[in-house]
């Protein structure tokens, strides 16, 4: 297990390195540069060259990469030439909104999906099971923005319990929690409905396995066989889906962020792409890539903790 952990960690490091090259190259190859974007089509070649000199974008590719990558290692993402802000602190700021939102949303999703998914599986041949499956279908079908607007109408406009949108920062913890409550609920319902389907089908499938019959033949009741034998086995496919959901949500929350006016990562990325703020885009994409790699790393390690078959292959 320890050997596996170290090996997987090494793979993570190599992947991050490869990703940094890829991200940097892709953005360097994009047609049009920042100087052109700022000065417009009528700019003189001299003015363009001067601006490029100022931004350092006329230096050789390798030199620019090493400069940027070296900064990353020190935690320095550079200063955006366009807006003059520190890219690193901008990203950290937005992550301070997006990460708590995702964590709260996914916690809620798990709280919805696991019990209801198991119940839907156990009662799969009854009206309750059918109703739960239908409910999850509805949850998936309802668009997030619509649910968001509905919640705003009820809880912010009519009842005035919660703010309709915006985020004032973590200095006011109470206010921050209030601001994230509805967006997290919307996220939790949408993702929970998806996850619930996976929980249900995983449990239904595992309950048909031979070893459940062995467990029942020992004298375990259905619910004992479920809790002692089925759930851990059913967790394996669910962990996969959970990892994928987390990775997608990092920028997938952009719709919810827009509805609730939250200054999140996805929203910033959209704006930066529009403004051609390439250094910020580059930093943000790198952070997202690193997060996805990190999530996959955690998922793999959890797999190994759960499934002994993987441990002996390593």
């Amino acid at each position: 297990m320890v050997i596996y952990f170290v090996r997987r960690l090494a793979i993570l490091a190599v992947s991050l390195f490869a990703a940094s090259i890829l991200v940097f190259t892709m953005l360097a190859l994009l047609p049009g540069d920042q100087a052109q974007a700022m000065l417009g089509v009528n700019a003189t070649p001299e003015a363009l060259e001067a601006l490029r000199e100022q931004f350092g974008t006329n230096r050789p590719f390798t030199e620019r990469y090493l400069d940027w990558a070296g900064g990353l290692i020190r935690g320095d993402f550079g200063i955006s030439p366009l807006s003059g802000v520190s890219v690193g602190s901008e990203i950290a700021d937005k992550l301070g909104v997006t990460v708590p939102l995702i964590l709260a949303g996914m916690t809620l999703a798990l709280l919805i999906a696991v019990p209801l998914g198991i119940l839907a599986a156990v009662k799969s041949r009854t009206a309750i099971g059918t109703a739960l499956s239908a409910l999850s279908q509805v949850g998936i079908a309802v668009p997030s923005f619509w649910l968001g607007i509905l919640l705003i109408t009820v809880f912010a406009v009519k009842l005035q319990w919660l703010p309709a949108g915006g985020f004032t920062g973590w200095d006011d913890v109470g206010g921050a929690v209030q601001a994230l409550l509805m967006p997290a609920l919307v996220l939790g319902v949408a993702q929970g409905a998806i996850l619930m389907r996976y929980v249900r089908s995983a449990v239904v499938e595992v309950m048909q396995e031979d070893f459940i019959q062995t467990a029942r033949a020992k004298g375990l009741s259905r619910s004992q066989a479920l809790t002692r034998h089925a759930l851990r086995n059913a967790a394996i496919p669910v962990i996969t889906v959970l990892g994928l959901q987390l990775a997608t949500l990092l920028i997938g929350t952009v719709v919810i962020e827009n509805v609730f006016g939250l200054p999140g990562l996805g929203r910033m990325l959209l704006q930066d792409v529009g403004n051609r703020d390439l250094l910020k885009v580059q930093g943000t994409v790198m952070v997202l890539t690193a997060a996805v790699l990190l999530i996959n790393f955690v998922v793999d390690v959890v797999y190994h903790a759960v499934d002994p078959r993987l441990r002996s292959k390593a």
């Binding site: 070893f211 062995t214 851990r232």
Partner: peptide
């Protein structure tokens, strides 16, 4: 009832299945 039968299964009447490869819980 199934509850009463649970006390009988594995205790008074037990069973060996055909497929040893899948009859055991892989995670235990």
């Amino acid at each position: 009832s199934d509850k009463e039968m649970c006390a009988v299964r594995g205790n008074d009447i037990a069973m060996v299945f055909q497929e040893p490869m899948t009859a055991l819980n892989p995670l235990m």
